[in-house]
Nucleic acid binder design. Structure first.
Lengths: 192, 192
DNA sequence: CCTACCGATCGGTAGG
DNA sequence: CCTACCGATCGGTAGG
């Protein structure tokens, strides 16, 4: 469904090149702002030729989105497992996610917020996958010894929305993704 | 430049109707997801007829965006002026902004994040106006007695991005916009 | 992977 | 405010 790596033959690797190119374009210009002809041009072929490798623009976008979430989820799970107490797990998750989101060559997921740009049936698939992803954070937040006055649902939504939005204001050169993640974890740290 | 109200004659008020309709469509479907024909249909005219009232889709969007920021800015300035210490001012600003952003009929600004969907020259105008808006929060954050380990630039970007993103996850029925704003202010409160 | 094309839709305009 | 249309661009396909 969403194999992203692999290089057993030429067909596979050509397809992967196209996926990587498409991901970067989607990330930069959005779903509607990226035409199949754009993706073709950046891949060195005409737009129509892409349909030998993919079924439709919609399917391409969903595959990229879900693959990016798969990768991010794996990294976060690994990072969280290596951490000690609940606050360390929160910081580890933030570091892992921002590391993925803000990597300079990251063909990944700044498209997570494109929900409004996308056809209805595509959006349904994206939302379903994202909900599963957010369950990861639900578990992390549930374990935090938060003060009584803080609503965990709001807390989790704020945390996630700003991790997703970080790519919009992040500029390389000042703080590193890791340093920003540490700041996020620090701001969200409230001993009960 | 951005008069939004007014009803001195029929032309003005017809134009305002169209602006309101367009704002709601842009907010729901995004810049590219809203066609001039959509706006026309929702206003009871054909798409081409809109050009009697507006110059272009780009100019329409910029006018709505800047008008929404003008309105939000005025409310925040008033709310902050009425508050006492720095933490109260932060909470007052959050309450005012979320009240605007999450109002059920709000034809306002959930389009603030559409920057990637928009033509380059439009984006330049949007960014310029938004930067001025963000200066408001720069001043509020500058006055906070934050702990030494917290970076004010990151702090402000996180605060703003999540206030903007709140419309994406907010659902009426549970917490009110005001209650959510109080939660935000609480999470971001860290005595130095 | 290209040539050549389809039907649909877009922002916008002329002329009334 | 409508009719009627423009050139451009879109996702996608047939046929090789």
């Amino acid at each position: 469904m969403s194999k992203q790596a692999g290089s057993e033959d030429g067909v596979r690797s050509r397809r992967d090149e196209i996926l990587a190119v498409a991901a970067q374009l989607f990330a930069r210009k959005g779903y509607r702002g990226t035409s199949m002809r754009d993706i073709g041009e950046a891949s060195g072929v005409l737009g129509g030729s892409l349909y030998h490798h993919i079924k439709s623009k919609d399917a391409l976008f969903v595959e990229l989105h879900n693959g990016a979430l798969d990768a991010a989820e794996a990294r976060i799970v690994a990072a969280v497992a290596a951490a000690g107490d609940p606050w360390d797990r929160l910081e580890a998750a933030c570091v892992a996610l921002l590391d993925v989101q803000l990597a300079p060559d990251s063909l990944t997921m700044p498209m997570m917020n494109d929900f409004r740009e996308v056809p209805d049936d595509v959006r349904a698939q994206l939302v379903a996958r994202r909900d599963r992803f957010e369950g990861l954070f639900r578990a992390i937040v549930a374990d935090l010894p938060l003060p009584a006055g803080i609503d965990r649902s709001v807390y989790r939504n704020l945390l996630l929305s700003q991790l997703n939005a970080a790519a919009d204001w992040f500029r390389p050169g000042r703080l590193s993704p890791r340093e920003i993640a540490v700041q996020v974890a620090r701001i969200f740290r409230h001993e009960g």
